[in-house]
Design a protein around this nucleic acid. Structure first.
Lengths: 200, 200
DNA sequence: GTTCTTTCTTGACTTAGGTCAAAGGTCAGT
DNA sequence: ACTGACCTTTGACCTAAGTCAAGAAAGAAC
């Protein structure tokens, strides 16, 4: 499937922000000045463990994963992000301490980056942005909380069903290995869940 | 240990908010008008599953837990909140859908409640509040993300050590049953971890 | 199209953590 | 100070999920 980058990337970001609070001319002009469009190859990193996360990343096209690698070299997926979503290690971004996370493109992608000084500029000069980003992060918070609840209270099988139900759009774009890592099990065990389910 | 409610409760909230962005006279007056101080007994609920969460709750004194009860009648702790922290089911609060969570006092407590219309009033009329609450929730988000990461990538023993290290102030205030529920294990297994650790 | 690298599947075996039950211990509320 | 309701501990046993290994299948990259 070819990737069509037909619409102006910045326009996708403006539309996204308009869904929260409509931007005025001045804010749009400012955004154009301070947002950077980038093309990202498959497997390329936006952030690697040990680095400080310096950007808020908005996905225009493509798919990313954010994960940790533990002492046993195992990958643990924290989140995925696709079109019109944000992906950033907010902890590292704000504290300016080295991140323990990786953000990596799962597909060839196009993103828009906003550097920290620019985001602070928006927060200070256009107070509207505080409101929009408050709402965006509140939504992410709720999603994360539900996921934690699920993780500590349900079986692997149920988490897999919920994943399929909640994120059907991600299913075709991710390997089972990545999904297994997201729901907190091994790829082998996910494979068993799937084959057992297929035999019903 | 007796509970001293000496300082004006509202003043504790004002101090807390001042730590983010100093409030002016008008904002303080507005807060006095729209914030409600309440005394809460041990075991009393601020929210029960099935209800819509109608308040942002700021803890002046005491300790609360927010949890889910699953089909097997088991309790799963999502968070605790003590002095100068907020506890609310943000999902239910914003969507105005029934919550699946309980918020319950672990100790006799005093809180300040802000109802949704009042919070929206602050967000709209004092834009500063958007910034403060954005930062508060960003911090909570980071904490939650670290916890999820831990939950999907470490052993029960390690989670218990981390809990003791990260929340020493909570240790004496909570039963082991509550801590076990928070780190996602059974009380029996936590007891085993503890006795095994003691024998070293 | 072919090659090379990932991914997926399956089998045999292990293990972390859960379940159930019963006996003591604690502690909040009166 | 008493008392009834929780909490904690321990033992015996169970099970969901992990580990290791090796072959088959599927995608990327050339």
């Amino acid at each position: 499937m070819p990737h069509s980058f037909s619409q102006m990337p910045i326009q996708k970001l403006i539309n996204h922000l308009n869904d929260y609070l409509p931007l005025n001319e001045e804010e749009i002009a400012d955004l154009n000045k301070r947002a950077t469009v980038r093309k990202i190859k498959r497997r390329q990193y936006l952030l690697a463990a040990g680095e400080v996360c310096k950007f808020y990343n908005f996905v225009v096209e493509g798919c990313f994963k954010m994960y940790k690698i533990d002492e046993a070299a195992k990958e643990h997926n924290l989140m995925f992000a696709i079109e019109n979503e944000w992906i950033t290690d907010i902890g590292s971004f704000h504290s300016e301490q080295p991140s323990q996370l990786y953000i990596e493109a799962v597909e060839p992608a196009q993103i828009i980056q906003i550097a920290k000084p620019d985001l602070l500029h928006f927060y200070t000069n256009h107070l509207k942005f505080n409101r929009t980003f408050r709402v965006i992060i509140e939504d992410q918070f709720v999603e994360l909380q539900n996921r934690l609840l699920q993780t500590i209270s349900t079986t692997a099988e149920e988490r897999y069903f919920r994943f399929m139900k909640d994120y059907p759009r991600l299913l075709n774009r991710l390997s089972n290995t990545q999904i297994a890592s997201y729901i907190g099990i091994t790829p082998e065990f996910l494979s068993r869940i799937r084959s057992q389910q297929a035999s019903k």
